[in-house]
Simulated assay, not measured.
Amino acid sequence: MNTDLPHSENEIVWTEAGVSHRARWRSEAGVPAPKRVAIADDSTTADAAYRQACEGIALLWRGDFHNARQLLQAMARRIDRKPRKTADAPLDAFNLHRQAQAQRARTLGMLLIPLEADYGIGLRRAPDVREACLEAYGPSDGPSVVSLRELQGLIGAHEWRKKGVAIPALDGERIHPHYGVFSPVRGEYVELVARAPLPSTTLAFDIGTGTGVLAAVLAKRGVERIVATDNDERSLACARDNTVRLGFGARIDVVKADLFPPGRAPLVVCNPPWLPARPSSPIERAVYDPASQMLRGFLGGLAEHLEPGGEGWLILSDFAEHLGLRTRAALLSMIDEAGLSIVGREEIRPQHPKASDASDPLYRARVAEVTSLWRLAV
């Protein structure tokens, strides 16, 4: 049964067996609670579920959990069967790709799972997701409802956190990303920091540290003290956990700051988001930098935080240039306007699977991509 009862963006309401229900609505992407909700179970067909989801009707699942997963996969196949719009211009292809991804997320996000007050799932064959939910959401404040798609993301993030990501520059030691913190699975930028010539080993600033991987690499290379900054609480907790686990807790200070900590250093490192576009979810903030805000902030403040003779390392992919989102001339102009000069540049080609996937809608840009470490000085 559908319902249009009054509700807030953080509360979902539905009618079941003639009784009205309310629960906390959870969405890490900030998606408002669906206004229309129907009950679905093992008898719900994929065609019916897909049709209702496309109409904006959310499906609150009451059947077997594994059947819900299979239903979600069937809905995804129906989306993938639809002909994809294509474009020759890279920027048009990028915009079409983002639109398609957003529509896919909206449709698949309509299959919902109820969570009990302790984050348990009262469905047949449901996994124990309590620890994964606690890591992502913190202590529970009562029953809630979440999309199965988001729940699968929580489970995947929990497994990555347990397993970790092996980092060759750390002799195979692992970085354990927390939920909502971008994982260093694309290792080429880490390799650049591992091989660039160090201007000093006394002190370094790591701006926007994330998991803390670059700070750890600098410590591994012998930098005596590193101040790692971030303004995201999850990133700060993640970086602290990783640096302590790796044995660098006494040499790496993880502090909250928008960009720079107080003072100056002979080395200041920053790996800002690479694409100047608006993120559609919190996790995308590691990829999308609206109007190049963080990039401009780093370049604009670098001179004030470099010691004489020091270097600022900007790690940046030229993917945005191949997409038509930013030109090389614009980047060089930002560097020049900040009173900086380029004293060296290290380059590396991407190694991720999409770089060799000709079926990817952004393949032309991906195959041309180069990641650079720009060595900058005042």
Rank of each mutant, 00 (worst) to 15 (best):
N271C: 07
R328M: 04
N271T: 08
G63I: 11
A49W: 07
P184H: 01
E191A: 15
V244Y: 14
N95C: 10
E159S: 08
L376T: 05
H21S: 06
D42R: 00
L203E: 04
T201P: 02
D88P: 00
I39G: 08
E16C: 09
D118Y: 09
V31C: 11
A239E: 06
A87T: 06
E135P: 09
P282V: 13
D258I: 04
A48Q: 14
P32D: 03
V181T: 10
F319K: 06
A358M: 10
G324Y: 03
R349Y: 08
I121K: 01
A46V: 09
G30K: 05
Q103G: 04
L259G: 04
A58Y: 12
D357K: 03
L192Q: 03
F298A: 07
G208I: 00
R106S: 11
A38T: 04
R186M: 11
L316T: 03
A257L: 03
G120C: 08
L151E: 11
F205N: 06
V146K: 14
D141K: 13
V13I: 10
E304Q: 11
R104P: 02
P34C: 07
Q351Y: 08
G172N: 12
R125S: 14
D118S: 06
H305V: 05
A87F: 10
A239I: 00
D92I: 04
E55I: 06
R106I: 03
C133F: 00
D64R: 04
G208K: 04
R62L: 12
A257P: 01
E224A: 14
A219T: 02
A40R: 00
E191W: 05
R125C: 11
K85V: 00
K354F: 12
D206C: 06
A100T: 01
A303F: 02
I348V: 15
D171H: 03
D206G: 06
G156E: 13
D171R: 02
P262W: 05
D232Y: 09
R278K: 14
L314I: 02
S333R: 15
R98G: 05
N242V: 01
R345Q: 14
F319H: 14
D128Q: 12
R375G: 11
L134H: 13
R345Y: 01
N231M: 06
R221L: 06
P90L: 11
L275V: 14
R225Q: 11
D318L: 04
P34E: 04
P127I: 14
I167N: 01
R26T: 15
V181G: 12
T371K: 05
S372W: 07
K162G: 01
L295D: 11
L112I: 10
